[in-house]
Amino acid sequence: MRQFTTRDLDKQVGDVTDAAAREPVVLTRHNNPRFVLMSYEHYERMRAGADSRRAYRVSEMPDEHAVHFDEAVGRLARGERYDDEP
């Protein structure tokens, strides 16, 4: 999930909303997560229970999710993009 500061939202609203159209983004203030911005369609899927995704604490994450998480963090650490990013 991408992160932006609330200041980014003020200065780059187009970039932030474009990112939120693709996936939920975290808005931080004073380096702390404060808000999540997402498309209305994503919100409706979540509300309807049609989205099977689930959030876990790292300590509670199932092993099969931990493997994917570690792989994704490794890709990001190497400067690679997400699979669906242009």
Rank of each mutant, 00 (worst) to 15 (best):
M1G: 09
R2N: 08
F4N: 05
F4G: 06
F4Q: 02
F4Y: 15
R7Y: 08
D8N: 15
D8K: 06
D8S: 11
Q12M: 14
G14V: 14
G14I: 15
G14E: 15
D15M: 10
T17C: 10
A19Y: 00
A20P: 06
A20D: 09
E23R: 14
P24S: 08
P24E: 05
P24C: 00
P24H: 06
P24L: 05
P24T: 10
V25S: 03
V26I: 15
V26C: 11
L27S: 08
L27Q: 06
L27E: 06
T28F: 00
R29H: 12
H30Q: 15
N32S: 11
N32R: 15
N32Q: 15
N32D: 11
P33A: 12
R34T: 09
R34W: 07
F35N: 10
F35I: 08
V36D: 03
V36H: 01
M38Y: 03
M38L: 13
M38G: 02
S39W: 00
S39A: 13
Y40P: 01
Y40S: 11
E41I: 05
E41N: 04
E41S: 11
H42K: 14
Y43G: 01
E44K: 14
R45V: 01
R45W: 03
M46C: 12
M46K: 14
R47W: 10
R47F: 01
R47V: 12
R47N: 09
A48Q: 10
A48T: 12
G49E: 03
A50R: 13
R53T: 15
R54S: 12
V58T: 14
V58R: 12
V58L: 15
S59A: 11
S59L: 08
E60V: 01
M61E: 00
D63Q: 10
E64A: 09
A66F: 06
V67P: 04
H68R: 15
F69P: 01
E71M: 03
A72L: 11
A72E: 13
V73W: 01
G74R: 13
R75D: 11
R75T: 05
L76A: 14
A77T: 02
R78C: 02
G79Y: 02
G79P: 07
R81M: 06
Y82H: 04
Y82A: 12
Y82S: 05
D83R: 13
D84R: 07
D84V: 07
D84M: 02
E85R: 00
P86A: 00
P86N: 04
